[in-house]
Design a protein around this nucleic acid. Structure first.
Lengths: 163, 163
DNA sequence: TTCGCTGCAAATCCTTTGCATGATT
DNA sequence: AATCATGCAAAGGATTTGCAGCGAA
């Protein structure tokens, strides 16, 4: 299904369907919300196909980006991260990222509120918005609980922690 | 004024006030909304102080970031960009970036709508939002007009342009 | 068979770092 | 005078590219 679609898309663009390309797409596909780096994709694919090279992974990602099958996200940690796009889910646009400052976990979050913001921009500034990207930094549930627990335990610690 | 503040802040942190540091801060300060790259800052400062090295610019930026005088923005073009922060204006948080896909121009945009989004997130997901970053990609006024003009001129061209 | 795709290694790009010299307090 | 900051050049890390050989059409 996804395989056939992919083959068709490649064919339509005069590109060849190779094991490497399929495996890279599958890695991204199966890791849905994990926002993999190139290196991570490389490791995943290498488990099943050890002869693959990192350069091929980068080239394939580039290809998938151009085909609009994959989108890239910059989380500000110096790595480009990639997530599967339109092909198997339609959550392509209009989803934002919650990024945990503690553990780095990324949660995707769907919300159309930004449509409102875009409208507002159109009215006040002359700028035609095509796409948007929202990142919210904070603390995820797990890390929040952990912090809470530590605070409770440490209530009697006399030291304030000036930082 | 700004100079003195800067001197004070440096002194408070046991740092020395050097010509290079002042010039880097001034470059960022005077180019308010331009979101300069390190290389651009380097060029600006070099005009007035040719013996400065790029490494010093990077080190100074790092310093200014740590002092919270400057903030960094990733526009996804592979360069880190920097903008002056809290010191001379209080527009630190809550301003978003409109990025022109055509000419790369960056327009800063102030809006508190995201507070609403943050509240909504707090309700639906257990995630404590600390800060957020919004980038809107599209076309700026100048580029829109240019496109319009080209379209008008080219109305009679028979070719559709299958892309 | 043809031509694109791959793997490897070298190259590139932005940014950081080591070290001896130079400037600031 | 004592450090800290600088400039230079070399190192670093992510991504890219060149090229000969391999594999899909």
């Amino acid at each position: 299904m996804l395989q056939d679609d992919f083959g068709r898309i490649l064919r339509e663009h005069g590109l060849k369907k190779t094991k490497q390309r399929v495996l890279v797409l599958e890695a991204l596909s199966s890791c849905g919300d994990k926002h993999l780096t190139a290196e991570e994709i490389y490791e995943i694919v290498k488990a099943e196909f050890p002869e693959i090279g990192l350069a091929t992974v980068y080239r394939t990602i580039q290809l998938l980006l151009e085909l609009n099958l994959v989108e890239s996200v910059q989380l500000g940690d110096g790595y480009a991260r990639y997530e599967i796009g339109k092909i198997n889910e339609r959550k392509a646009h209009r989803h934002h990222h919650l990024i945990c400052l503690e553990c780095g976990k990324v949660i995707s979050f769907r919300d159309d509120l930004l449509d409102e913001l875009e409208k507002r921009i159109k009215e006040s500034v002359s700028f035609q918005v095509i796409n948007h990207e929202v990142k919210l930094y904070g603390y995820c549930e797990t890390c929040l609980e952990q912090k809470r627990r530590i605070e409770e335990e440490g209530t009697c610690t006399a030291f304030g922690g000036a930082s």
